[in-house]
Structures are given as C-alpha cells and as structure tokens.
C-alpha cells in the first residue's frame, strides 16, 4: 500500500518547525505504524537525508516511550492503544497521515517528533514512593490486603507514563498521570503513612511544571493506553481536599 506522511520536522528545540510531506510505498497492512516510519527513514538515508526522529523502545505497548499525534488523535485512530501497537491496516491505500509531536508547554520539543517528558519524572520524584529502605521489610503476608483494594491499586498502577493524557488534553493537564500514581500508593496500607504529604507534594510539582487544569473533557481516558479511568482524578481531588485540610 501507498500513503503520504505529513510529518512535523524541527531540528532543535528553538528552531522553527514545519510539516514535510513524504510519499511512501511498498508498505503492507501487517506493518506496524512505526515500521512504516522505519521504512521511510531507510529511504531517507539512501537519499542522503537526515532521518526523522521519533521515539520507541519496547514496541509492545508497555514502556511508554513511543507516542505521537496521528491524524488528530494521540496514538492514532483507536482508543486505548500506544503508537507502537497501531498497524497500517488501520489506514487505507492512498491516505494522508498527519503526524505531529505531543504539544504541551510542559513537554518541549527536542527534535522532530521527540518531546521532553521529564516533567513526569519530577512529579514522581516528589513522593511517588514508600520511603522504606531496602532490607527493612516485614513478611509480605503480614499485612493483608483485600483483593478489591489490590485490584483497584493495580488498575491505577498500570499507567505507562507515555503522556498521551497531556497530549490530548486541551489544557495539557497532567491530572490523570498524577492521580493514577497517587491513588495506587495511597489506597494501599503501605502508602498510608505518607499519604497526605504525597498528594500535596506531587500535585505541587504538577503545578510548578506548567500543566493546565483538569476540566474533565474525558479525552485522556479514551486515549490512555492503560485504560486509566478518569474517576481517578476525582479521587485525587478528594485526597487533595483531605490533605489540604488535615495534612
């Protein structure tokens, strides 16, 4: 099959970027979207041009490194998948596919389709852990955790940190990302002792990084590859309120 890629090219963070068009043929429907870009890059090399920079690592939807805006959707036309899980069979022969980097003030462009998501790491740094040192743990079964609670914690913990929530949100809010981590830890008994401080510190960092407000459009939960529910944000808000009052 044959498609036209319209891809954002930008050499440096401060450089002015622009869309560039590329006709690509010899594609097959079994190819993943990223394999189609790989294929394009090989052609570019042979033509002596610089390759398009985009990110990926695991290519199986778990590391969260891939992620671009494809035809007006984060990670492409399907809900709840990553870019690396998108296949060319989702497009038609002759399609034009517009590819843009994540757009958010807190995710500055590094090059072409690559953005800097280290703001997420800095939110994690502010308390997404249980401050117990290696070697101090009690016997694992000493604290019982009901299946329902463990399952809910796992639902929230499934976040892969790809940034699609921020990318798709009209406000570039990082609420879903932050809420998922807070709820994972704060709902477990192990996370209780530091629960209030965790909420306050992590959300304060979210504010400092320049993310927007959550206005519950719900776009994030549709695009989230891990299917994190937006109810998590409401839950974080409750925890925030409690922490502001009690913490």
């Amino acid at each position: 099959m044959k498609v036209t890629f319209k891809i954002w090219r930008q050499d440096k963070p401060q450089a002015k970027g622009a869309f560039k068009e590329y006709q690509v043929d010899e594609l097959t429907e079994d190819m993943s979207f990223l394999e189609a870009l790989d294929h394009l890059n090989e052609r570019l090399v042979l033509r002596g041009e610089k390759v398009i920079a985009y990110e990926y690592d695991c290519r199986e939807g778990i590391c969260g490194q891939c992620g671009v805006f494809i035809n007006g959707r984060a990670h492409g036309p399907h809900p709840n998948i990553t870019t690396c899980q998108l296949h060319m069979r989702s497009f038609k022969d002759g399609d034009t596919i517009v590819v843009e980097p994540w757009r958010a003030n807190a995710f500055p462009i590094v090059k072409d389709l690559i953005v800097d998501r280290s703001a997420f790491d800095r939110i994690i740094e502010q308390g997404a852990y249980i401050s117990a040192k290696t070697g101090t743990a009690p016997e694992a079964n000493a604290i019982l955790i009901g299946k329902a609670i463990a399952d809910r914690a796992m639902d929230a913990a499934a976040c892969i940190g790809c940034g699609a929530c921020v990318a798709t949100c009209k406000n570039s809010s990082a609420a879903l990302f932050t809420a998922a981590k807070i709820n994972h830890l704060n709902s477990l008994p192990q996370g209780k002792p530091e629960a209030h401080q965790r909420v306050l510190d992590m959300t304060a960092q979210m504010e400092r990084e320049g993310f927007g407000h959550c206005s519950f459009t719900g776009a994030c939960e549709v695009e989230c590859p891990a299917g994190i529910s937006i109810a998590n944000i409401a839950e974080m808000n409750a925890r925030q309120g409690k922490a502001q009052l009690l913490g």
Partner: peptide, 17 residues
C-alpha cells in the same frame, strides 16, 4: 517482602494473602 513493602500491587486472594 521488599517489593510488597514498596507498594507493588501483587495479585491477592479474597482473604488478602
């Protein structure tokens, strides 16, 4: 024990183990 303490949501039985 270590990972449980670090908050890893390992699968559990209804009774919590």
């Amino acid at each position: 024990d270590h990972f449980t303490q670090q908050g890893v949501p390992f699968a559990r039985e209804y009774g919590g183990v």
